[in-house]
Design a protein around this nucleic acid. Sequence first.
DNA 1: TTAACTGCAAAAGTTTTGCAGGTCG
DNA 2: CGACCTGCAAAACTTTTGCAGTTAA
Lengths: 137, 137
Amino acid sequence: MSVSVEALDAALRERGLRATPQRRQVLTAIVSLGHATPEQIHGHVHARNPSVNLSTVYRALELLEELGLVSHTHLDHGAPTYHLAAHARHLHLVCRHCGSVTEAELSIARPLAAVIAERHRFTADLTHLSVHGVCAE
Amino acid sequence: MSVSVEALDAALRERGLRATPQRRQVLTAIVSLGHATPEQIHGHVHARNPSVNLSTVYRALELLEELGLVSHTHLDHGAPTYHLAAHARHLHLVCRHCGSVTEAELSIARPLAAVIAERHRFTADLTHLSVHGVCAE
DNA sequence: TTAACTGCAAAAGTTTTGCAGGTCG
DNA sequence: CGACCTGCAAAACTTTTGCAGTTAA
């Protein structure tokens, strides 16, 4: 975790931007939560620092994503969920019925990515891949 | 197209629901547009029948999906796009840069679905699969 | 006729924005 | 000190809901 925060500080410094507590706390929240919606992230940050505003969370998420530290997917019904870019070593199986999210090996989608690259000249970003369906319940 | 509308009428009758012009027009719009957001569908319907309200479009989409005639995915930034269930014979390649949506053979994802079924006991719905990435530009 | 459906308007939920004040560097 | 950031409030969107009037069957 402190690794991520240090990476953040470095990335910010490099761009002449500021390392504020809020930005660090948003990143820390993502690290703790694994993957979460802006709302959930705000809840986590807010617990430690009640003055932090939801709009600041949105702005921080946008920035963190721009810096390449974080990325997001649309898991279920359009709800965006954010996670560490470095942790994006799995794809998501989203159950339509129970809403559960299971993680699966990224490597199992490699063959698919290869076919897509070849036939469509399209570079698939597997870290953004989520497969919808029905789990074993 | 009239095929779809007839299927709609039949499905509605079977459930004791009503075949209204609005419902038919929403379905027709989806047929013409291929895939479209609620907003775009409303635009299309509205052009022919200006009195149709957006909330009616939402209600119709919900119903059509329930009847299994239509389904939706979240293509790009969470924007829901609806399409005929019968046309869902392809998966989507969504370009992060230009926003374009390319269609690819569903069959190329079969092996992936098989692995997921075996390892995770998860039945993948490939018709809801969209792959994000970068196209050839 | 009458239960289902629609249009309208308002509510609810989410994300963005303008601005005055606070703060990192 | 000075530009960058934040909190707040309001705006901009998207989707849902309640209700009175309309309409398909």
